[in-house]
Structures are given as structure tokens and as C-alpha cells.
């Protein structure tokens, strides 16, 4: 009896797992294989390429070498230069600047949207997101037009002595700064709005009894509740801003080299694929390290990073 039951049981679970396998293959496999074949495999190829030598026309070949990484660190036939470290630093600063600036703009904005009547909120949110539906090149181009020499904004800046006469506000660090905020603001507003909208205001009421000042009330009752949204926003802004090369290239007038531009250059103007691959690997490492740290922090806060990531 026991043994016959055992075999039917096995046959039964066998049929189950067959059904499972078929359903899995038909639904998950096509998309997953597509991503594996067309993204995971290519990125592994890039990692491998970073260990190859560079040929005459940018085509990499054997033998394997760490040459590309040596150059990433700044060593070349001409000796050591801190150029790449500066570029990496600038990109990190760009990423951090974008995150901090968008927080400063988005935080009150999220509260503003929530403070409006409920039927207006989706509309206001849509208004924040709408510009990001246009092409990034167009958005950046619009700022070029707005900040060019001889525009009213530039005249204003000239007259107030901020910039030299006949100069424009673009190209400049300031233009890059504005372009970054413009491009990444929606990615900060969305998760913050989600957090602010579901704020538990009873905690604020309780806090009102315990803390005297408005600042402490905010810090102890409101801020912790918006922290998950804030972290999600930082991830969504800092990662793409770290690798952004369109904004600094167009609005910075190609004067300021960023990690993104540096990588792009190795595959366009002066081909050097192993070097470019090694730089890309550096970018990936920083990206995943940042992501890992923020996920850790978010998980420790208990609520995860919300629906966004």
C-alpha cells in the first residue's frame, strides 16, 4: 500500500512539474532569454573585452592584458596623469549634484501636489512628468536655446555682472546643472509623491503633543515616513545622472569631460574598445555598488524601496 501510494505520488508530482515547466517555458523563457542573449551576454562580452589588447583600428585582440585598467588609473607612455580620476570625480559630483538639487526642488513640490484637492493631484503629477515624454535631446536643446548668448536670460546675467558681456549662460557648468535638474526632476517627484500621499498624519498629531517646535515635529514624524520615497528617488536620479553624457556634451559645450563622454569617445571618435570597456566596467561597478548600498539602507528602513524599484 505504502509503496503503491509512493509511486502514484511521484507520477503525480512529475506531471505537475511538467505542466509547470511548459508554462514557464512559454511565458517567462522568451523574454528572459531575450534579455540574457541581448543584454547579459553583451555586457559579459564587454567585461571580457576590458582584458584584451588594443589593435590598430580599435579592434581588440589577444593576448590578455591589464593594460586597459592601467590606463583607466591614469598610467600611459607619458607617465601618470590624474585626468581620469578627475573625470570620475566630476561624474560622481554630477550624480550627487543632480540628486541633491532635485531633492531640494521635488520635496516641497510633492507636498504641494498632495496639498491640492484630490482630483487635481493626478493632473499636477502629469504636468511634472509630461516634459520627460519629449526626447532628451530636444529637452536639452531647448535649454541651449534659452541660455544662448543674446537671449534675455543671458542679458540679465550680463547686466547683473554674473557673466562677461557678450557671453551666454551656455555653455557652462550652470547650464549643465539646470539641464540635469530639468531632466531628472520627475524621477524624484514620483516616488516622493507616492510616499507623501500615503503619509500617516496621525503620527504627526501624536508628535504635536511630544515636540514643541515645527522643525522637530517635521524631523521626527514626517521625514522618516518620506525616507523610502527619498531613497528610491535618489537611486532613480543618481544612476542615470552618473552616466549622462548628452547633457554635459550639449550644455557644457563638450568642454567638460564626463565618464559617459569618455566611454562614448572610445567607441566613436578615437576607437579604443578595451579601454572603453574597462571604463564601462568602472561605471558598472560604481552603479551596482551605489545600488547595493541604497537597497541595503532601504531594506533596513523596513519598507523596501516602494513600488518603483
Amino acid at each position: 500500500m505504502a509503496s503503491s501510494l509512493g509511486t502514484t505520488e511521484r507520477a503525480h508530482s512529475g506531471r505537475r512539474s511538467e505542466r509547470f515547466a511548459l508554462g514557464f517555458v512559454l511565458t517567462v523563457a522568451p523574454g528572459a532569454l531575450w534579455i540574457i542573449l541581448f543584454l547579459l551576454a553583451p555586457s559579459i562580452l564587454v567585461i571580457a573585452m576590458a582584458f584584451l589588447s588594443n589593435g590598430d583600428y580599435g579592434s581588440p585582440h589577444l593576448p590578455m592584458t591589464l593594460d586597459a585598467f592601467r590606463r583607466v588609473l591614469g598610467f600611459s607612455v607619458l607617465g601618470w596623469s590624474n585626468g581620469n580620476l578627475k573625470t570620475l570625480w566630476r561624474s560622481l559630483v554630477q550624480s550627487a549634484t543632480a540628486a541633491v538639487a532635485t531633492i531640494l526642488v521635488a520635496y516641497p513640490l510633492a507636498f504641494f501636489i498632495v496639498s491640492r484637492r484630490s482630483y487635481l493631484r493626478p493632473l499636477l503629477l502629469l504636468m511634472v512628468i509630461l516634459p520627460s515624454w519629449t526626447n532628451q535631446v530636444i529637452r536639452t536643446y531647448a535649454w541651449m536655446e534659452l541660455l544662448a548668448p543674446d537671449t534675455s536670460l543671458s542679458h540679465l546675467a550680463q547686466e547683473s555682472g554674473l557673466i562677461a558681456p557678450h557671453m551666454g549662460l551656455f555653455p557652462s557648468d550652470f547650464a549643465i546643472f539646470l539641464g540635469l535638474i530639468y531632466n531628472y526632476l520627475p524621477y524624484m517627484v514620483l516616488p516622493l509623491y507616492a510616499a507623501v500621499e500615503k503619509l500617516d498624519w496621525t503620527i504627526v498629531e501624536v508628535g504635536r503633543d511630544l515636540y514643541a517646535s515645527g522643525y522637530r515635529l517635521f524631523w521626527h514624524t514626517v521625514f522618516p515616513q518620506t525616507l523610502p520615497g527619498l531613497l528610491a528617488g535618489i537611486i532613480l536620479v543618481a544612476i542615470p545622472a552618473f552616466g549622462d553624457f548628452v547633457v554635459p556634451q550639449l550644455l557644457g559645450g563638450n568642454k567638460f569631460l564626463m565618464l559617459g563622454n569618455l566611454i562614448a569617445n572610445q567607441f566613436t571618435s578615437t576607437p579604443d574598445w578595451p579601454y572603453g570597456a574597462a571604463l564601462a566596467l568602472v561605471m558598472l561597478c560604481f552603479t551596482f555598488a551605489g545600488l547595493f548600498v541604497f537597497r541595503r539602507v532601504a531594506r533596513r528602513l523596513g519598507r523596501g524601496e516602494g513600488q518603483i524599484l
Binding site: L5, T8, E9, A11, H12, S13, R16, R19
Partner: peptide
């Protein structure tokens, strides 16, 4: 739910493996 042990009959027919 599938079983981890035992047998189940409905109208006298075994339902093991019947979805």
C-alpha cells in the same frame, strides 16, 4: 494544492495528478 502524501477520491475516482 497538491498533496505531500495520501490519496483523494471523488466519486470513486482517484484525483491524484488531476488538475
Amino acid at each position: 494544492e497538491d498533496l505531500n502524501g495520501g490519496a483523494i477520491f471523488i466519486s470513486g475516482r482517484s484525483m491524484l495528478g488531476v488538475p
